[in-house]
Design a protein around this nucleic acid. Sequence first.
DNA 1: TTAGAACCTAAAGTTAGCTTTATGTCAAGA
DNA 2: TCTTGACATAAAGCTAACTTTAGGTTCTAA
Lengths: 143, 143
Amino acid sequence: MYYSIGEVSNKTGIAISTLRYYDREGMFPNMERSHGGIRVFSDKEMATLRVIDCLKTTGMSIKDIKQFLHWCQEGDPSLVKRRDLFYERLEEVKKQIAALQKTMHTLNYKCWYYDTAVTLGNEDMVKNLPLEKIPEELRDYKI
Amino acid sequence: MYYSIGEVSNKTGIAISTLRYYDREGMFPNMERSHGGIRVFSDKEMATLRVIDCLKTTGMSIKDIKQFLHWCQEGDPSLVKRRDLFYERLEEVKKQIAALQKTMHTLNYKCWYYDTAVTLGNEDMVKNLPLEKIPEELRDYKI
DNA sequence: TTAGAACCTAAAGTTAGCTTTATGTCAAGA
DNA sequence: TCTTGACATAAAGCTAACTTTAGGTTCTAA
């Protein structure tokens, strides 16, 4: 299947200007063009966009994603580098999830804090509540 | 306890220039200064830094965090707004965790993919592997 | 009292990741 | 064939979140 830039934009929700920017950055090596110079996206480029999305979510920069995509072009000699990269990204994502989970606990504490304050109509009373009045599971996340 | 900007930077790992930038942005309303004009961070500012870190992790912009900190200054009338903000951030963080977990599955697929390719010394063989040769728990995350 | 480390400000600079603008070409239907 | 909407490029512009620079002031320990 082949797609115009507008179709790709509609299917993925990625802005046309962004797709052109990615192309300019070399994220679609050997993407085809029509005789008149118009970009022709194939399923290969669609797959690339999914990889870009995945790696972007892990916090990788466009520059580094581009590097990875070029390793893909090199074929088998870069297999180990590419494998190592995914293991690194996996570790990174685990760290990010852990950080978010910690943050989630803090947010739960804050939700309890403000719920209580709104109920009492007064923040100071919550501020001065003794520790044992804070729900046990939230105590450690007081901030 | 009181701290100089350098001490705060050491304790938190936040660059001095960043602390000054936050101050310039108004994130530390009524922070004290020494007679000579030198910033004096108290435990209140340290707590603010923890809140900033929490909200930044949820993806909030500095501008919006500043807004929240100003609501804090307003006292009880803004309690509901502040509570609602934390519930929003909680939802946001849940979404982020879900996205990261999905990404983690994809990364696990890729790790398996490249492990196999490295073992075989050949990517094409993995590419053409029938679906049932992909570990069951990874099949849905093929990309 | 003096050296130098640590602090201060204002303003300019940096980087990533796009988006916008200006101008022009291509392609498909009436 | 003509129109018009979708495409093209190059270059400039934008925003967030800092960081750097330049030049000066304050504080502390010898």
